[in-house]
């Protein structure tokens, strides 16, 4: 069922729709919590809290943007409240970005891995700077568009674009050496 239908049913007090919505987004949100550096138990608590809020507010629930962005954004805010810090996303100059990855050398294990693109790409993702990694994963794994990512992380869409751009160029450069 589409989110918009689920929300309409939740507005009308439908707990089954609420349960369905929870199950639809749980795996995504717990994965997102992991990117954000949360401990698994904290992630579970935070997600349950976000859905509890959603249920309590169900009658006056107005989700102007997409429900998906709302849920991610709420999870992010709660994680920050929990950790007691207001994390600022900022774009570092590019030279800071990939200092722990030597893009121009192919390690022996990478040669072995060249057939296994999936594992390789996973490694490249881990080589990204923290914020670039979160943004790339939100785009690639969670299929959020750059407007949604910007809204969730409370940063400008241009910052998201730049992060994605850098990440993709980095991957292309790395893949080139494995080809």
């Amino acid at each position: 069922m589409e989110d918009i239908d689920l929300i309409a049913r939740i507005n009308a007090n439908d707990r089954e729709a609420f349960n369905a919505l929870f199950l639809k987004y749980y795996a995504l949100l717990i994965d997102f919590c992991k990117y954000m550096g949360a401990k698994p138990e904290d992630g579970k608590d935070v997600i349950a809290d976000v859905f509890l809020d959603l249920w309590v507010k169900r009658e006056k629930l107005q989700i102007n943007s997409s429900l998906k962005s709302y849920l991610y954004g709420a999870v992010r805010n709660k994680l920050f409240t929990l950790s007691g810090k207001a994390m600022q996303m900022q774009l570092l100059p590019e030279e800071h970005a990939y200092n722990h990855a030597a893009a121009d050398e192919l390690r022996p294990d990478e040669i072995l891995l060249r057939k296994d693109r999936k594992m390789l790409i996973e490694r490249f993702i881990n080589e990204l700077p923290e914020q670039g990694k979160v943004i790339f994963l939100m785009s690639w794994q969670h299929q959020l568009d750059h407007h949604e990512i910007a809204q969730i992380l409370n940063i400008s869409p241009n910052t998201v674009k730049t992060h994605l751009y850098r990440a993709l160029n980095y991957f292309r450069k790395r893949i080139l050496f494995v080809k």
Binding site: A27, I30, K44, A48, F51, Q141, L168, F171
Partner: peptide
């Protein structure tokens, strides 16, 4: 290149059991 990166996307790990546990507590 990008299509290749995109096609390497793996499904998220199955969290069915855990999701039901958390949902039961929430309910």
């Amino acid at each position: 290149d990008i299509a290749e990166i995109w096609s390497a996307r793996k499904p998220l790990p199955d969290k069915g059991g855990e999701a039901h546990d958390v949902l039961a507590g929430l309910n």
